[in-house]
Amino acid sequence: MVLLGTLANVAAIIVGALAGKVLSGIPEGIKKTVMHGLGLAVIILGLKMSFESKNYLLMIISLVIGTILGELIQIEDRLNQVGKWLEKKLGGKEGGIANGFVTATLVYCVGAMAVLGSLDSGLRGNHEVLYTKSLLDGFSAVIFASTLGIGVLFSAIPVLLYQGSIALLATQINQFAGEDLISAMLVELTGVGGLLIIAIGINVLGLLKIRVANMLPSLFIAAFGVPVVTWLTKLLGS
């Protein structure tokens, strides 16, 4: 089943968020320190991923073009609107549900594991990456929900739509691209994803407020920029 890994991920987030809500009585000092620890771990993961890029010029171009597109579309504002709509429906305090929803959505959707795992599910029917991601997301959901509130639970919805769509589309990729090209695209996507994850870590630590959601198109620019660069290189070399 193509969506098995994604469904396991969604279930882990829901269970973790509910557990975190039950454990909301954790002392604020512990929550704050644990969140700082998660922020540092996220930054280290992002650094490791970003160093995998083989074409830093493409990484920079992808980030610039993707961010401009994201700002024009106003992705982050739209995510916040969804969070605020949930607040009105559930009667949560202002900013509470939206903050948890947006933060968790970004953490769970931006990154190599979400994309690579979904592609692996679609291309090979292998769900190991998403099963591993499910464990990580489930544990982090406990912390996020106990700190940021029940909005974290609703991040399971975009995770289902995002990862599920990638997995389903991946079943058709082999018809258009070879294995080498797909591998190269994943490398550059991982590199740009690492930069976005670093930005998420900075947000979690409260050092800056980076509009990471508006940078999401950079992932697709990086991936589809690889065949363009390959074509230009062959054209100029001939």
Results as ranks from 00 to 15, higher is better:
Leu4Ala: 15
Ala8Val: 15
Ala11His: 10
Ala12Leu: 09
Ile13Thr: 09
Ile14Val: 14
Val15Glu: 05
Gly16Cys: 08
Leu18Asn: 10
Val22Met: 14
Val22Tyr: 15
Val22Asn: 15
Ile26Phe: 01
Pro27Leu: 08
Pro27Asn: 09
Lys32Val: 14
Val34Phe: 14
Gly37Leu: 10
Leu38Gly: 12
Leu38Ile: 14
Leu40Asn: 12
Val42Gly: 10
Val42Ala: 10
Ile44Gly: 14
Gly46Gln: 07
Leu47Met: 14
Lys48Tyr: 05
Phe51His: 15
Phe51Tyr: 11
Tyr56Thr: 13
Leu57Tyr: 12
Leu58Pro: 09
Ser62Met: 02
Leu63Phe: 14
Ile68Arg: 08
Glu71Ala: 15
Ile73Met: 12
Ile75Val: 11
Glu76Ala: 10
Glu76Cys: 02
Leu79Val: 00
Leu79Trp: 02
Gln81Val: 09
Gln81Ala: 15
Val82Asp: 00
Val82Ser: 02
Gly83Ala: 07
Leu86Ile: 04
Lys88Tyr: 13
Lys89Asp: 09
Gly92Asn: 09
Gly92Glu: 07
Gly95Trp: 08
Ala98Trp: 00
Ala98Asn: 03
Thr105Glu: 01
Tyr108Ser: 04
Leu116Val: 13
Gly117Ala: 05
Leu119His: 14
Ser121Cys: 07
Ser121Lys: 10
Gly122Asp: 02
Leu123Asn: 04
Leu130His: 00
Thr132Glu: 11
Thr132Asp: 12
Lys133Ser: 06
Asp137Glu: 13
Phe139Asp: 06
Ser140Gly: 11
Ser140Val: 12
Val142Gln: 03
Ile143Cys: 07
Ile143Asn: 04
Ala145Tyr: 03
Ser146Arg: 09
Thr147Pro: 06
Ser155Leu: 03
Ile157Cys: 00
Ile157Ala: 07
Val159Tyr: 00
Leu161Ile: 14
Gln163Ala: 13
Gln163Pro: 01
Gly164Leu: 08
Ser165Asn: 13
Leu168Thr: 07
Ala170Glu: 05
Ala170His: 02
Thr171Tyr: 14
Thr171His: 09
Gln172Phe: 14
Asn174Leu: 12
Gln175Val: 03
Gln175Glu: 11
Gly178Met: 04
Leu181Gln: 02
Ser183Leu: 05
Leu186Met: 08
Leu186Gln: 04
Val187Asn: 02
Glu188Arg: 05
Leu189Val: 10
Thr190Lys: 00
Val192Asp: 03
Gly193Val: 03
Leu195Phe: 11
Leu196Arg: 01
Gly201Arg: 00
Gly201Ser: 08
Asn203Ile: 06
Asn203Pro: 05
Leu205Glu: 04
Leu207Cys: 04
Leu208Gly: 07
Val212Asp: 01
Asn214Trp: 00
Ile221Met: 04
Ala223Ile: 07
Ala223Ser: 12
Phe224Asn: 06
Gly225Cys: 08
Gly225Asp: 10
Val229Lys: 10
Thr230Ile: 14
Thr233Ile: 13
Thr233Cys: 08
Lys234Cys: 11
Leu235Glu: 07
Leu235Met: 06
Leu235Asn: 02
Gly237Thr: 10
